[in-house]
């Protein structure tokens, strides 16, 4: 290969991005692009894995067998999504064990939404409807992300997640049409998850330090505020349809813009949860660490079994 200077390599790289040519693992890429992707994809993977915990909490207490089978399938999907994404980080040269250790040491972040507790069965509805709904809104544009393995993983994830949102909305609809106590339970879940769901899109555009570069690299296709607005616009009518009230006294539809205007998000709360001071941060990480430690013997046994099988085969 001809010796090219860094500027020329970067120019060619950006030219490919501008032409919507995907970047694949062995292609030359700027170190910052690689690091940005490793950070984003691993955070995304961690969110899928930690995201199993608030729902796993309710598998044994699902109200009937159908709901239980559905919830189990959803949580299993999340494990799968975490695995697709950890594999994608490995294509960028990240070490899988180190990536997971960064989560367990608190160095790596994951979506702040999973640091809220799931207090009632209605929370399974609210999570599927709002949290998966917000996640889908974030992930659909990522299917066109400039990095091939991430984009391909997102195509699989989005295909699988459409059932996640529907099953959540079905739970909410059933409760909202149930007894007054059931309807109150659904409303309470909406009250607690509405604002954290809006926070899932991240800080306001003015405070989002990575957005500009990520958009230039086509890792990101829409800004945080654009996606948040889109989420509010589609979700508010859904709540109205099932007779629930979005807990925002400033919420109103603007006829001129065709968009809903919503109240101020409590960013102090957001940053506190991101910094590790949410209601369940410590518990989530403790459970993850324990799962890894308790699973150590399984990983060792699998290695021992593989060695034994290999010996038998060669004998």
């Amino acid at each position: 290969m001809k010796e090219l200077n860094l500027n020329e390599l970067e120019r060619r790289f950006q030219e490919k991005i501008d032409k919507d040519i995907k970047i694949e693992p062995n292609d030359w890429m700027p170190e910052n692009y690689r690091q940005t992707l490793i950070r984003q994809i691993s955070q995304h993977a961690h969110s899928e894995i930690v995201g199993m915990l608030p729902e796993g909490n309710w598998i044994t207490r699902a109200p009937n067998l159908r709901r239980k089978a559905v919830l189990l399938a959803k949580v299993q999907d999340e494990a799968g999504h975490g695995l697709y994404l950890y594999s994608a980080t490995e294509t960028l040269g990240a070490d899988r064990e180190e990536t997971i250790d960064d989560l367990h040491s608190g160095k790596a972040k994951y979506s702040s939404i999973f640091n809220y507790p799931t207090l009632t069965w209605a929370d399974m509805g609210a999570i599927g409807w709002l949290v998966d709904g917000a996640a889908i809104m974030n992930q659909v544009p990522l299917c066109r992300c400039s990095y091939g393995p991430y984009a391909r993983a997102m195509v699989r994830v989005c295909k699988e997640e459409s059932f996640h949102q529907r099953q959540g909305f079905e739970i909410m609809t059933t409760l909202a049409n149930g007894t007054p106590e059931q309807k109150a339970m659904a409303q309470d879940a909406l009250n607690r998850f509405w604002w954290p769901a809006l926070m899932m899109f991240g800080p306001n555009d003015a405070d989002s330090k990575h957005t500009e570069q990520s958009m230039r690299w086509k890792i990101k296709r829409h800004s945080n505020d654009e996606l948040r607005q889109q989420f509010v616009d589609v979700t508010v009518p859904q709540a109205e349809m099932i007779g629930l009230t979005v807990p925002d006294k400033d919420l109103k539809f603007n006829e001129q813009t065709g968009h809903y205007e919503y109240g101020e998000i409590n960013w102090d709360e957001f940053w506190e949860v991101v910094k590790g001071n949410g209601p369940c941060n410590k518990d989530r990480i403790d459970v993850r660490r324990k799962a890894k430690e308790d699973g150590e013997w399984v990983r060792e046994a699998a290695n021992a079994f593989a060695e034994k099988r290999a010996r038998k085969k060669s004998a």
Partner: peptide, 23 residues
Amino acid sequence: VGSLRAADATMAVENARDVYTRR
């Protein structure tokens, strides 16, 4: 379709069944 980690080929096929062919 992607990649995964497993202790040997047989377990890799089993894991692939769970990770990549759930539907």
